[in-house]
């Protein structure tokens, strides 16, 4: 059940170059939120479409998003101050099923795909699992939320250029620890997700991926955010990232 809630900004912090964290009062949305879902935020008069942003975390009626400024809408969002009001639809979409990932799951985030994995890790811990996180970034300046993850689980950090932590990709780490894991969940660029899905598949592990696509209504009515899925007859069918996803079983996705 989706809700439209006017949410007061509690905090807007710059985390890095073009990277921001907003915490907002969203008691009604928080009450229904599940890990991996997103909110759809109206971003100023000049932008007709809302901007879909993954939910990073939530607690005591406060919801946190961490996002990257990519255009006019997110630029507007990044300029919000404490006390400003946001028109938010949420919680939207189909999230991660952490229980289906077993007691030693791995949560992988790439770049701005890292934030939604934080709530996943916390949930897995709460369910008695021993999760680990693998967080990949372009370079040192793009690293976000490292401390948040390390406060709750073992977390590996990689950078594409080696400017911080381990030089390499999240898949390098995954290959090394995949034998000692029970399931994989990931959010990030599509090539990364595809590579992760292949490794998980080879290891016979369940794998859930959070996909991204240009979105319209955000609730499943306009059908624009098509994601190619495998149909039962072996052909391609289109699911929709906003309602059927953003999280899909990696086996369902027509890569």
């Amino acid at each position: 059940m989706s809700i439209q809630e006017i949410c007061r900004v509690a905090d807007c912090t710059r985390l890095g170059e073009g990277l921001y964290s907003i915490t907002m009062h969203a008691p009604a949305i928080c009450e229904k939120t599940q890990v991996g879902q997103f909110v759809h935020i109206a971003c100023g008069e000049g932008n007709l479409l809302r901007r879909p942003i993954s939910i990073c975390d939530w607690q005591d009626g406060k919801l946190r998003i961490v996002f990257q400024v990519k255009g006019e809408g997110t630029k507007w969002l990044a300029a919000r101050k404490e006390g400003d009001e946001l028109d938010v639809l949420g919680p939207l979409g189909h999230g991660f099923d952490t229980k289906a990932l077993g007691d030693k799951p791995i949560f992988i985030g790439g770049g701005i795909g890292v934030p939604p994995m934080l709530a996943c890790v916390k949930k897995a811990v709460g369910e008695g699992a021993q999760p680990r996180a693998v967080l990949g970034f372009r370079n040192k300046d793009a690293v976000i939320l490292e401390d948040d993850f390390k406060a709750v689980c073992e977390a590996f950090v990689t950078t594409d250029d080696g400017s911080y932590a381990r030089h390499g990709f999240v898949t390098d780490v995954l290959k090394e620890i995949v034998a000692d894991t029970t399931g994989v969940a990931a959010c990030g660029p599509k090539p990364m997700l595809k590579a992760i899905a292949a490794i998980a598949d080879a290891a016979g592990l369940p794998c859930q991926v959070s996909m991204e696509e240009r979105m319209g209504c955000g609730i499943g009515a306009c059908l624009v955010c098509a994601c190619a899925l495998k149909a039962e007859n072996g052909e391609t069918r289109y699911g929709h990232v906003c309602k059927d996803g953003p999280v899909f079983d990696a086996k369902e996705v027509a890569w």
């Binding site: 696509e213 240009r214 098509a226 069918r237 289109y238």
Partner: peptide, 12 residues
């Protein structure tokens, strides 16, 4: 089935 993504572009 409809067309592949992207199916939307924002305009002024």
């Amino acid at each position: 089935l409809g067309n592949p993504a992207p199916r939307i572009a924002e305009t002024p």
